[in-house]
Every structure is written in C-alpha cells, then in structure tokens.
C-alpha cells in the first residue's frame, strides 16, 4: 500500500540529513508505530510522506502511484495527517470536521459531504459536541475531532504525529483503540509517531525504529526487543507480560548497556 524507498531529507541544502535512505512499507489495514528518541526524524518522516517537507531524494508511493506526481488535492484524498500540536480552532466541531472534505469541495460543501461528516461524528461519539467550538473541548475530545477531520478525507493512509502526547491515560487508550477500529473498518493504513512503547506494543501491528536518521529495525513483535530499544533510546528495559499483555518496563538506573544475554529476561516469545 505505502512504499517508501531511499527517502533522504535535510532541512537545509547541504546540511546534515534528518533522514537518510529510509525505506519501508506499510500494508493495507496495518498500523505501524514509528519509534525513536527525540530528534530521530520521526515527525519529519511523516511530513516527508505527505510532502509537507518535500524529500531531497527517494520516492513515496501509494498503491503504486508516486505521491510526488499527485496534485495537492489528489494527495489530500489519499493521505490525511494529524499534527502534533493542534491549534485551538475558533469554529464548531462540525465545521472543523467538514474541513476534511476540503480536497473534494469545488465551490461549497454538498449534501453528501455533510452526511459523511455527520456519519463520522456519530461513529466517534461526538454528537453531543457537534455544534460546540473546538476551543472549548478537552484535550481528548479535541484529539478525537482532529482524527475525525482526518477520517473525513477518506484517506488510504492516516499519519498521526504523537496523537496521545497531551492526553491522560484513559484518553490515550480510547484514542488509540479508536484509531485501530477505524483503520480496520475503513481499510486504512496508519503510521503513528509515538513515544510510549507500551501503547505502541499494544495497539500497533509493526514497528519502525529510527536511529541516526536511518532505519535501525523494522518488523513485527520480533523487533520489539530490549536490545533494539536500548540501542535506539539508550535506556535499559525489560519486556514482561502481564495478563497476556506485553509491558515494557524501563530501568534507567541500571548501569551498562544491555548485553545480548539480557534478552533472557524478556518474557515474550519474540
């Protein structure tokens, strides 16, 4: 579905690469966590995929079509994006979600556009807030509105930049559960930049580790090892299982790098 080949990006011409020869693929219905420490290029990777930051080299394809060759509206119909810091909009929830129909609107929103927005509002449980200003909503509700707006674009690929960073634990789980349900129901692929490894391991199908501007590891549960985590985050972790749910427990005070032998502490059959 999404195929990224040898993607390279630097913010300044001739400057150091934020991303270098990054290649990976995401299948339909798949949710992929993009992991790495601060400054690893995770958010930049999302912005390169949807041309917010046009890459210097490499190619991004969706269903075989090059994103670089698409018109802006074609791209917006294929890829939707929820930014890390969303501004508090002085418009109603309905109007904010209606913005997702912008790539389809020629002169004004049609009855079909309004019905699509209405359907998404119901699906995401926003009926009670539909005519309230976004600025008056809580962080969790606001994040749902942004997700709903992205969904209104009817995309093939959904890019989420730290969707849970400002949310309490209940809302973190609610939002990610919603993302997973939406992705499966609407056959959407999802790429999520996320810092919380426990949320990642619980809600994502595959994992992409970025280190030093390059892909360090990419794959399913088999790459979610203490060794990979230590190599990328420089922190010692144990991975255990609690009631059948994998849990990443950091031990920042433990000295020394994790040796390969440390993997024996991992309770998961990786």
């Amino acid at each position: 579905m999404l195929r990224v080949d040898n993607l390279t990006f630097a913010y300044k011409q001739g400057g150091s690469n934020v991303l270098k020869d990054v290649s990976f693929a995401i299948d339909r219905n798949e949710t992929v966590a993009i992991l790495g420490n601060n400054g690893a290029g995770k958010s930049t990777l999302l912005k390169c995929i949807n041309r917010i930051c046009p890459p210097q080299n490499g190619e991004v394809k969706i269903d075989g079509s090059s994103v670089a060759q698409m018109t802006r509206n074609e791209m917006a119909r294929s890829i939707s994006y929820v930014a890390q810091n969303n501004v508090s909009l002085n418009m109603t929830v309905f109007d904010a979600i209606l913005l997702g129909r912008k790539p389809y609107i020629t002169w004004d929103a049609t009855a079909a556009d309004l019905e699509i927005v209405q359907g998404i509002i119901e699906q995401m449980g926003l009926v009670d807030f539909a005519l309230r200003p976004v600025a008056e909503l809580s962080g969790g509700e606001r994040q749902k509105v942004m997700l709903a707006r992205a969904l209104a674009q009817e995309p093939k690929l959904l890019l989420l930049d730290e969707p849970t960073s400002n949310l309490d634990p209940r809302n973190q789980h609610e939002v990610l559960r919603m993302v997973r349900v939406i992705a499966r129901e609407h056959h959407i692929s999802v790429a999520i930049v996320i810092h919380d490894l426990n949320l990642a391991i619980r809600y994502c199908d595959r994992f992409l580790f970025l280190r030093d501007a390059q892909v360090y590891a990419c794959g399913g549960r088999e790459v979610m090892t203490p060794q990979n985590i230590e190599a990328v985050y420089q922190i010692h972790v144990h991975i255990m299982e609690h009631r059948g749910i994998p849990v990443v427990v950091p031990f920042p005070d433990e000295e020394g790098a994790v040796s390969h032998g440390a993997a024996r502490r991992c309770a998961l059959p990786l």
Partner: peptide
Amino acid sequence: NAMESGADTAKSLGV
C-alpha cells in the same frame, strides 16, 4: 478555513 488549523494541517488538506 484550512489555514486556521495551522500551516502543516492546511498543507495536508491540499492547500
């Protein structure tokens, strides 16, 4: 209207 959501979001909406 799209630009009210911030430049990055507006770009992702095709602006």
